[in-house]
């Protein structure tokens, strides 16, 4: 597969949110606004790229029977690193995403890519795969965030274009499911063409 193909498949054919339907917990919970979605996507991308690189480096020497615990230790390390860095340098972002940062450890996307791609491919390709899937995840979360923010708060990236409130349901959990469902239909319809 071409280098370019590795990146673009994360956007379309293997889009983590709309096609693979992985990592639903942060997807539903953090996309109350476009900015939150974007930040969560970028945080996940950071972990995804680094863990992919390290796992593809060490996978040749890790005994098969312990590869899952080893991968999880690596992923958890990067998540903790990210958590400390965010707390230190972007405390406001850390405050909004809070609990969902440590939860990246159990995000199926990260372990899924480690298993399905990084452990079988070269370091360079794994890094590209991390970038591709990361961008796909970030874009998906941002789009869901944009839709929910427009409908729910009448704003886009924090810029309000109506006075008062939007349709509150879209800021809460049911709105997350509704928007995700419709976007998934739309995405798959368009992707099939």
């Amino acid at each position: 597969m071409s280098k370019f193909g590795i990146i673009t498949k994360g956007l379309l054919k293997e889009n983590p949110t709309f096609v693979l339907v992985l990592g639903m917990c942060p997807t539903l919970a953090t996309t109350t606004s476009a900015m939150n979605g974007l930040e969560m996507g970028l945080a996940t991308m950071f972990v995804l790229i680094l863990s992919n690189i390290v796992i593809s480096l060490i996978s040749p020497v890790v005994p098969d029977k312990v590869h899952i615990p080893v991968y999880i230790v690596v992923i958890a390390t990067f998540v903790t690193v990210l958590q400390l860095l965010m707390q230190a340098f972007v405390p406001q972002v850390y405050e909004t995403l809070g609990l969902f940062i440590p939860l990246i450890v159990v995000n199926c996307i990260v372990l899924g890519r480690a298993e399905a791609f990084a452990s079988k491919n070269s370091v360079g390709d794994s890094a590209l795969d991390g970038i591709g899937i990361g961008i796909g995840f970030t874009l998906s979360l941002t789009v869901i965030g944009i839709v929910r923010e427009i409908l729910g708060s009448g704003a886009i990236f924090g810029w309000k274009f109506i006075t008062g409130d939007g349709i509150l349901a879209f800021v809460m959990a049911p709105g997350a499911f509704i928007v995700l469902g419709y976007l998934m239909v739309l995405f798959n319809k368009l992707a099939k063409r």
Partner: peptide, 16 residues
């Protein structure tokens, strides 16, 4: 991948 015997497994996990 290295063989999955006890020594290798313990060693790799400890190292990581």
């Amino acid at each position: 991948a290295a063989k999955s015997n006890l020594k290798n497994m313990a060693l790799s996990l400890t190292l990581v």
